[in-house]
Design a protein around this nucleic acid. Sequence first.
RNA 1: GGGUAGGUGGCGGAGCGGUCAAUCGCAGCAGACUGUAAAUCUGCCGACUUCGGUCUACGGGGGUUCGAAUCCCUCCCUGCCCA
Length: 400
Amino acid sequence: MATREIEVDEILDRGTIVEIFPSREEFRGRLLNGERLRFYIGFDATAPTLHLSHAKNIMLLEKFRKLGHEVILLFGDFTARIGDPTGEISARKQLTKEEVERNVVEWQRQIRPLMKFDDPDNPPKIRFNSEWLAKLSFEEVLYLASNVTVQRMLERDMFEKRIKAGEPIHLHEFLYPLMQGYDSVAMEVDAELCGTDQTFNALVGRTLLKKFKQKEKFVVAVTLMENPKTGDLMSKSKGTGVFLNTSAREMFGQIMAQPDEMMELLFVNCTFLSLKEIGMLLKSDNPRDAKLRLAKELVSIFHSSAVAEKEEQYFIETFSKRNVIVEDVVEKSILAGSTILEALVAIGFAQSKSDARRKIEQGGVSLDGEKITDQAFILDEKYNGKILRVGKKNIAKIVF
RNA sequence: GGGUAGGUGGCGGAGCGGUCAAUCGCAGCAGACUGUAAAUCUGCCGACUUCGGUCUACGGGGGUUCGAAUCCCUCCCUGCCCA
């Protein structure tokens, strides 16, 4: 059937997939010959917050699931103890079973809009790699390790970089690719989706699977959410992330705060718009309009189109026209009689009183549009319902 | 095991007895300009403060000194070279 081919090619060529091992053509052939393949993607579930990069991967996996393939979300609860070698020194704290379970519940809640968990015919599966990794004996680990050479390990760019930079590499970090590789063996998967930074690990898995089970595993390397201009990844610490567990309003704002050069990546990987339409949007006169559309698309996916519509209006009024819609602002309750300093800290608009002081001194704090200059300003009931604004982004209606 | 160079704020990296809450760069915050983008400019960037100050900080501990991030002892950690 030609329609199937078109579907498959769309997935393979959209741009999300960067590289396929051993080759795109072999993978395509297997996708088209009617067999049901087992896909998996691994997550480090140490943090309960997901961002769009996770979303992108899950959206891709969902496409394969819809084609009828089996998909597994693997939570690396065991590998999380080491952490993928990124430069951090020591073994990470082991998460308790409860913490892992809580994280998984939280994850599912956040990705529910992206994947049909309750599909009766082909539900996605969730697994944990402690299931097999925690059981390996030292002997088995040795055997595993005997299949990979130090030279091969040193090929990994991260290790190479660290050697060049004179940074330590701990021996246990070498085990990370082995463990991740063993996941493939334990689950006997046909394909692994991974970020391009994980290709090495995934390929180790390919080697192991071939050796132990005489099975060909495809490695599908997926683009990273990397700023094409600066090379920075979307990250929390740089404040460039778009997080999935936020309100529609915050998400809208986070998208609008994205650099222009991120738009194409986000459109292609995180929306369902056609490449043609994306191309047209990116050519529009004011990049801001394309970004508004992007924000609306994404908020629609994670919340609803009605909410997205409303948030767009809110955004335009509040930030473009600088009107404040009083009824529509988040309420923050504070204690009557608090000083402005205490209140700013209490509602999270300042990190400390010192920080709050600075913000006031610098003219960043206003109440109902009037700048506050007095640090000793007292907030009491007569200000109930007034709008407190700190900087551009922090707006709240204060209630007592 | 031997030698050698190091461990400073979110990161990079100065300082090597007082004037160090610690030069500078990045990141961050506030303001101006804007499209909650970028670039640019200005100011800020440990905490508390009755704005006089006070407290906590330069791997850990101990010491010398009126005074230590800076000197000494000891412990821990890391790179590199040799074995």
